[in-house]
Design a protein around this nucleic acid. Structure first.
Length: 306
DNA sequence: CACTTGACCTGTCCGC
DNA sequence: TGCGGACAGGTCAAGT
């Protein structure tokens, strides 16, 4: 056992961050037996205690998967734990050896968490039979986890409507373009943030991929040609893969507990770079509001279409 | 239907 | 120093 614990502290979990959490959890919790679960916030974990007792306590973890930004932790009881981190959700896994002295964080290469758990943001505590613990921390309480029969996951309203996985081979130009063409009069940024158009893109990678494709975020979809949209598809795939390769924008390299500086800032081209020169043309990057979100763009090389 | 806006939360930051 | 307001952003309900 090399790592005693891992903290996946996502500032803004989008597809690459959730994928990173999934890969980490796969190594850490598959095969472990759950002993007990505690939660004091019904919004964070709405299932009644009877569900927990029947379908989670004493269950073994079979697999960890991801669909869109949702984590799917399959249990041996025929139920799965669905987890959505929303904006501030974190999953912190602590090995048994450290679960006694619950102070950790400083100095560990995989850690961005410095402090003690549980803390005031702890919403759910999953204790394993071997003494290890998984904490679900979520400052803003937007995130949730819930137990659901594994066979009924696809009946979940969100799972029913969510669009294709952008990193799947089946996510072709024609699939992407056909879905965008159903949203002709909205901005391209609103369209790619829409989870029913495609899964997993959030505010960061929307801005980044639009910069890559030289498309202004406020461009109306029906003013964009197929060639531009095909280019955007390529850029979406590129930035998502790049981010996954870097471990997401999880703050592996944080030095301060507030953690404003994740490794993502090293490769972002526009996100939170307002006031800085565009790396392509030198024009100062600006911040505006598109689709109700803070939006970063270079208004020279991302010309507004239409 | 297509599309937009506000609500859900808490913590931080900025201007006065 | 305190205080109000803007902001952060994923998703959904309610609105045009």
């Amino acid at each position: 056992m090399t790592a005693a614990f891992y903290c996946y502290n996502n500032i803004m979990p989008e597809l690459p961050e959730v994928e990173t959490v999934k890969r980490g959890l796969k190594k850490l919790i598959i095969g472990r037996y759950i002993k007990s679960v505690s939660s004091d916030n019904p919004k964070s974990f709405p299932n009644p205690k009877s569900d927990v007792n029947r379908f989670m306590a004493k269950a073994r973890v079979l697999s960890v998967n991801r669909r869109a930004k949702v984590l799917l932790i399959e249990l041996s009881t025929g139920y799965s734990l669905m987890v959505h981190l929303k904006m501030t959700g974190q999953l912190v896994f602590i090995e048994a050896a450290l679960a006694d002295s619950n102070r950790w964080g400083a100095g560990h290469p995989n850690s961005s968490f410095v402090g003690e758990l549980p803390d005031k943001s702890t919403r759910v505590i999953v204790s394993f039979a071997d003494g290890s613990v998984l904490y679900f921390n979520d400052q803003r309480k937007f995130g949730w986890m819930k137990l659901m029969p594994t066979g009924l996951i696809l009946e979940d309203p969100f799972m029913k409507k969510v669009g294709p996985e952008p990193l799947a081979a089946s996510f072709t130009n024609s699939v992407f373009i056909a879905r965008l063409r159903k949203r002709p009069r909205t901005s391209i940024k609103a369209a790619i943030l829409d989870q029913s158009v495609l899964a997993g893109v959030g505010n960061i990678y929307a801005d980044e991929s639009l910069w890559g494709a030289r498309i202004h975020p406020a461009s109306i979809v029906n003013t964009l040609g197929d060639k531009q949209l095909a280019c955007l598809r390529k850029e979406v795939v590129y930035v998502l893969n790049l981010s996954i390769a870097k471990g997401g924008s999880t703050n592996r390299n944080y030095v301060d507990a507030q953690g404003k500086k994740g490794s993502y800032s090293n490769f972002a081209k526009v996100y939170r770079r307002d006031g800085q020169p565009c790396s392509r043309c030198g024009t100062i990057i600006t911040k505006s509001r598109v689709a109700g979100r803070g939006t970063h763009s270079c208004n020279y090389c991302q010309a507004l279409a239409g």
